[in-house]
Design a binder for these strands. Structure first.
Lengths: 245, 245
DNA sequence: GCACAATGTGTTATATTTACACATTAAATT
DNA sequence: AATTTAATGTGTAAATATAACACATTGTGC
């Protein structure tokens, strides 16, 4: 066996590092960044904050913070969200970790990206202080750091997830019309859908409770209002085994 | 506006931390763990290594290592793989980051989990030194650290991905029969599939090159051999916009 | 040359997805 | 009060995709 190959095969130390290594070897800071989605004026939006680094002066960035030494990752993400929005009970999902060496100008910072879905009606955060801003996803460009890439990764993830799980409801008020729901899907996926097929699909899934209420304040025939029925969504473990490239 | 709410709305410092913070605030070590899948004897297997921590004495764990201060995440995962297997050109995908405070006995270590697919024929690593071991996925239980959870997360991810993208080929030798391919899918998904429908599906996708060769050394009628045709898989951007919970 | 154990193939039934048009309703306007 | 407006609400038929299913063929091993 050639020596070069043998070298490769020499057992190396595993993840089970000893204490001293943990403390001394690594000087890597850890942060969490959140892509916070909201749905308003029939548009999918993202909450951004002005960068305070001179290097990125004037640019928008995602909301994030360093993870505290004794703070779980998910909890850190949750903290950022509740601090910013005052909301609890937020949908939150880890997406990807970005760790390029030079991604942050202040040193080695790797960041765990989350996205979250919030009901924009239920929060009233001050965005007019020019620090925070709801930007339409279509118009998000040129964010600070590698946040553009993080944003796009999270957005693609949302687009995929929303077709597989009923997440959309987290972006809507408790009561919504089917038109609202369709608008939501259309704006997230950036496509047009057939109204009849859309309704048929959702009714057949039996996830909506008919509230026997109507929209008000619409300048046309009002639609019925519905509510998402969590109880009915019991992750019907669909054992799907198709192949679909 | 209530004071408590106002507090929530007060702008906090963003991700753009200053240099000093990066160096002093965080003492979090960063590692990478790889769930290395192989396919052998018609079984899906995972490469494990004996834990060298006394706390987990006798238990198996995933292959991993600390990320070096000036090493990209993906590169670190790649390094672990090529060190262990002597292979390059490996399929590698980041899955999830695990960061519970107490997940590692030696201190705060967060770990980025990857899975990889390797062609077990093309490597010949010494597993008989009792350090490394290929374990059938069905029999993987009770790994060290939180590696059981990491393993299961990565396995579920693989199961999903394999139905959406032609990854399976990375686990097979260059030349394979359709039976091999079906066995692969069946063992990854842990289901039985209909042979005729399976073949129909793959032929219709037009990803296989018929090599006009036959299996040898089989005690029955030999099957034809095929090769995966990367060229033909040009991520036909299927704009699927179904909803399927 | 015969039994064996696998490969290789086609059709039908079912389920899912897509395409498509018109009557209905309440508000706003005249 | 009648009309216009802009939306809601609904069903069916065609096309596509999936699932179920059986028998002839081939090379090996005895």
């Amino acid at each position: 066996m050639p020596e070069a190959l043998v070298k490769h095969l020499t057992p190396k130390k595993s993840i089970s590092v000893v204490q001293s290594e943990v403390q001394n070897t690594n000087r890597i800071a850890l942060s969490v960044d959140c892509v916070i989605f909201g749905f308003d004026e029939n548009k999918l939006k993202v909450l951004l904050i002005r960068s305070d680094l001179t290097k990125y002066k004037g640019k928008w960035s995602l909301l994030g913070d360093l993870v505290k030494p004794n703070e779980d990752l998910d909890r850190a993400a949750y903290r950022i969200l509740s601090q910013r929005t005052g909301l609890d009970d937020i949908y939150l999902e880890q997406v990807h970790t970005f760790g390029d060496i030079k991604r942050h100008p202040a040193g080695r910072v790797i960041t765990v990206a989350y996205y979250s879905l919030i009901n924009i009606q239920h929060h009233k955060l001050q965005t007019h202080d020019n620090e925070l801003h709801w930007e339409e996803v279509k118009h998000v460009t040129d964010l600070a750091f590698d946040h553009q890439e993080i944003f796009e990764t999270c957005y693609r993830r949302l687009q995929k997830r929303i077709q597989e799980h009923p997440l959309g409801f987290n972006l809507l008020p408790k009561k919504f019309s089917l038109r609202d729901l369709q608008n939501l899907y259309e704006s997230i996926l950036d496509i047009k859908m057939d109204r009849r097929n859309f309704r048929k699909k959702f009714f057949s899934m039996d996830l909506l409770t008919d509230l026997d209420e109507m929209e008000t304040d619409v300048p046309h025939r009002p639609g019925k209002l519905y509510q998402f029925n969590f109880r009915k969504y019991e992750k019907k473990k669909k054992i799907w085994s198709g192949i679909d490239f």
